[in-house]
Design a protein around this nucleic acid. Structure first.
Lengths: 221, 221
DNA sequence: TTTTATTTTTAGATTTGTCTAAATATTATT
DNA sequence: AATAATATTTAGACAAATCTAAAAATAAAA
């Protein structure tokens, strides 16, 4: 089946929202899409006509299996393009989102298969988010939030949930990136900040807010 | 100024047509765009409102200087993406046109500047067509048609005007590609066919039609 | 359990790009 | 120069995606 750019964007947003909440409601989707509830309702009808949605008036909605497939294919394209932009074209990660939003709607499947190969079949995008394979399978990783990592256990930064320029600036300052080794030396009860040790850096202190946006996994050597 | 995908496509088509004829008329543009004359008229009004066109009702039209700039920027993007698809992703040249038609509308200027650098600032796309630079300047090459190349003068294939799968198949068979050295040994009056010598290949005969689609230039060593 | 507030949907309008059919202009032919 | 043929434009309609304002359904509060 064929989808317009707008339909793909709605499907992708619904996918992201239902990851959190299971069921999605009109207003939250309107907020996510930066549009009006009335516009959302119109699109819901269209998508449910195309069997992308389980939708009951006034009750909320979620993607069908087919809907999920479409969502994953868009997410896959988005993340592969982000990887391309950062790794091949040298963009900073906070600059790639909007461009990938456009590239993800280019329709050729062969393009995306070849791109994936060209990039060396990456499993994670530059923010650490997993890249679904062509069957929609998502690579899993046992990650936990840095704010709950056991003391003095070395772990590896696997993803960062806030991808703003401000966050990037801070992470650069602390020399933290995806793949960096990190351990927590001490936590301070007063404000939740913590002393950490980043590989090859002197120990330093980060705020609770930063920690909550960093996910790590144990190095499975 | 901002342009829709549709506006960009019209501007690009007008550009290509006016290269041939100077002035463009409604019906030929409708044919080129695979649409109806009435739709063309509607768009002409819109583009002339945006000062992209010199347009007089019933008289024909052509791009303004600003219009040409927009056209060249779209052509640039198209050809850079074609280069990427062939050289980096390994597509055959007859498969890249439709994909580049979509990619050319991705709007980021930084993207295209970085792509150009990443590709090594190519001057010609995989079909031998020149790639305008960021100022709209088009690299020139003194090319002539293979059908009028002087006998026994070695030249280099610089572009091929028919880019169909059928043409590609023939060229592969003759081991002719962009950059291949070639000379004409003999012309046959009977049907315009000619005996040629392609580097490292035994001499062979090609039809007049093939020759007319191949452009060459003298190797300026 | 009414009343109030919130959420969601409908109704109707708007913009963009397209279409068909009819009207008008231009060009070619007798 | 009148008529026929062709090219172009207008008028009016339609689908997609959006919007505002109002109505209807649901949830929360008194």
């Amino acid at each position: 089946m064929n989808f317009t750019e707008s339909e793909e964007n709605y499907i992708k947003s619904i996918y992201h929202l239902q990851q959190e909440t299971g069921m999605v409601n009109t207003n939250s989707l309107a907020a996510e899409m930066q549009t009006r509830a009335a516009s959302v309702t119109d699109m819901l009808k269209k998508l449910s006509g195309k069997k992308m949605l389980q939708y009951e008036k006034y009750k909320g909605f979620k993607l069908t299996e087919n809907g999920k497939k479409v969502a994953l294919s868009v997410v896959r394209k988005h993340r592969l393009w982000e990887y391309f932009l950062v790794e091949k074209l040298g963009f900073e990660w906070d600059k790639v989102h909007d461009i990938a939003e456009e590239l993800e709607h280019v329709s050729s499947n062969e393009l995306i298969e070849r791109l994936q190969q060209f990039l060396g079949n990456p499993s994670f995008d530059p923010h650490g988010d997993p890249i679904p394979d062509s069957n929609g399978k998502i690579p899993k990783i046992n990650q936990l939030n840095l704010s709950v990592l056991a003391l003095n256990k070395t772990a590896v930064v696997s993803s960062v949930s806030n991808q703003s320029p401000q966050m990037l600036e801070m992470l650069k300052h602390y020399a933290i990136a995806i793949g960096t080794s990190i351990k927590v030396i001490k936590r301070f009860e007063f404000d939740g900040s913590m002393e950490i040790k980043v590989s090859k850096q002197p120990a330093c202190i980060i705020s609770e807010l930063i920690a909550k946006n960093i996910f790590v996994h144990y190095d499975d050597k």
